[in-house]
Design a protein around this nucleic acid. Structure first.
Length: 469
RNA sequence: GGAACCAUCGCCAAGUUGGUAAGGCCGCAGCCUGCAAAGCUGCUAUUCGCCGGUUCGAGUCCGGCUGGUUCCUCCA
């Protein structure tokens, strides 16, 4: 398996800390609002990574955190009058539900900041004790970036002279402009605070991930040199978030946080990064109202994870057409029992995905398989061995890439109610009778009626089948 | 202002170590069909933003230019 390491800025051979195992930690969402398409893409990208490593035989341990202490959450508490926990559990549940709809496998470890406070405090205290962090008069604790000679190596940021041009505001209490908060002391009585030796307050964002990785991964997955194999997240997290994480962990523990760093590209709308401030964010829940989760998954995963992704409806329809072809083939070989997956096909897919998740190649291999198989069935409709192998191939696609697992006839009927279904069936029966009597005017009229309803029909050797367009 | 990444057919999009352009959508022709749809077959970039350079040979390496995006501030 080769992966692109964003720190080394090149594709490298993945050599895990522990033979045959892979530990991955991905920065999860701050749970103060619904997930948008960007969260989906990140989640999907690392789901693909996890599935690929599993298919290659690695024992994967996936961690994804929930940041459930944060300024934005507190703001939401103030706005809504609800408790912090009410808000965070609500959005965590929503997040998990929506990711499940996209076929994202659950992480093995899902730590929350609120459940890791001791680990966070311990790490901050260690840094203070080592004089790598300092408490200012307000009770805030800052990390002293000047004490870490490796600071900047993750994001390749030159430290010189940055302050003169930087847009970062200078806080006089900070020793260095780039020092960042490990702990924020509470400001008022209504503020949400946790007691700690240094002050009553709450953790800064960066320290959460470091402490959680240390707490949940280091012992079982680390080797004294690294805590985890791969640390992932969106490209915007590289700096400052991951730089800061790496610095804290390095200074507090004496070893590096992660052996490899991977970052996914953005979802863009009309060529611009999707974000709330731009007012162009697209909630996943809204997309899921209109499109099937599996189609969204296929679409969002159809472009290499490191590239930016320009979301638009036309491309989504194209993606759906491509997925449809797989399901039409599945219809052709269903129902039945799967035999063994074709070895060459499996190897080709694994080779593609093993090359830094080259999904484009993987999808093209699938397209070719579909065409070849259809061709073979056109020539020999009752090739039982091929039917079984095709079912196995599709099962493999589902396990590796997370699509193609549905019952094929149902796939084409998503969103159709029972009454509509009955109506469609009776129209088709009527049309078949008209056809039998060679009343083509009547049968074509019925077909037009169905098309007007958004239903397309196909006459096959086994009778007429229909699909929602 | 500083830094990084990207620029391939009408659209989407692959293309480690330079060796002569995957796949999908759309389109055209054909097979199949009562006609369609679906499926299949064939065709569709002498060319990879522009200009130079290195080389027997460059989409792939080097330099410059132009255009786009991102990061430097919360952010997937």
């Amino acid at each position: 398996m080769h992966i692109y390491d964003s720190v080394q800025k090149t594709k490298v051979l993945f050599e895990p800390i522990k033979q045959g195992e892979a530990s991955i930690y991905v920065c999860g969402p701050t749970v103060y609002d619904d997930a948008h398409l960007g969260h989906a893409r990140s989640s999907l990208a690392f789901d693909l990574l996890s599935r690929t490593l599993k298919a290659l035989g690695y024992k994967v341990t996936m961690g994804k955190n929930f940041t459930d202490i944060d300024d934005k959450i507190i703001k939401k508490v103030e706005e809504t009058g609800k408790s912090m926990q009410e808000i965070t559990t609500f959005y965590i549940d929503r997040y998990l539900e929506e990711m499940a709809a996209l076929g994202v496998q659950r992480a093995d470890i899902e730590p929350k900041a609120t459940e890791s406070l001791q680990a966070i405090e311990d790490m901050i205290q260690t840094l203070i004790d080592k004089d790598m962090a300092y408490v200012i008069f307000t009770g805030d604790v800052y990390f002293d970036t000047s004490k870490d000679s490796h600071y900047g190596e993750i994001s390749h940021r030159v430290s010189e002279d940055e302050d003169s041009l930087s847009r970062v505001e200078h806080t006089s209490e900070k020793r260095n402009p780039k020092d960042f908060a490990l702990w924020k002391a509470c400001k008022g009585k209504e503020d949400i605070c946790f007691e700690a030796p240094f002050s009553s307050g709450r953790p800064g964002w960066h320290i959460e991930c470091s402490a959680m990785i240390e707490k949940y991964f280091e012992k079982e997955h680390g080797n004294g040199k690294y805590s985890i194999d791969i640390h992932g997240g969106g490209a915007d997290l590289l700096f400052p978030h991951h730089e800061n994480e790496a610095a804290q962990s390095r200074c507090a523990t004496g070893h590096e946080l992660a052996k490899y760093w991977m970052h996914n590209g953005f979802v863009q709308i009309d060529g611009e990064k999707m974000s709330k401030s731009l007012g162009n964010s697209f909630f996943l829940k809204d997309a899921l109202k209109v499109y099937d989760g599996e189609v969204l998954r296929y679409y969002l995963n159809s472009v290499h994870y490191r590239n930016n992704f320009n979301f638009n409806e036309e491309d989504l329809q194209t993606a759906k057409k491509r997925l449809d072809k797989l399901y039409r083939l599945k219809k052709r070989v269903s129902p039945g029992k799967a035999s063994a997956v074709n070895k060459d096909f499996k190897k080709a897919l694994l080779d593609a995905m093993g090359d830094d998740l080259n999904i484009s190649i993987a999808l093209s291999i699938i397209d070719v398989m579909i065409a070849d198989t259809n061709d073979a069935f056109d020539k020999e409709a009752k090739n039982k061995a091929l039917k079984k192998e095709t079912l196995a191939n599709i099962e493999f696609i589902d396990s590796l890439l997370g699509f193609g697992g549905k019952e094929p006839f149902e796939f084409f009927q998503i969103g159709i109610s029972q009454e509509e279904k009955a109506n469609i069936e009776s129209l088709i029966t009527e049309r078949s009778e008209a056809k039998k009597e060679k009343d083509f005017a009547r049968s074509d009229a019925i077909r037009d009626e169905l098309i007007a309803m958004g239903i397309s029909i196909m006459d096959t050797a086994d009778g007429t089948v229909w699909e929602k367009a």
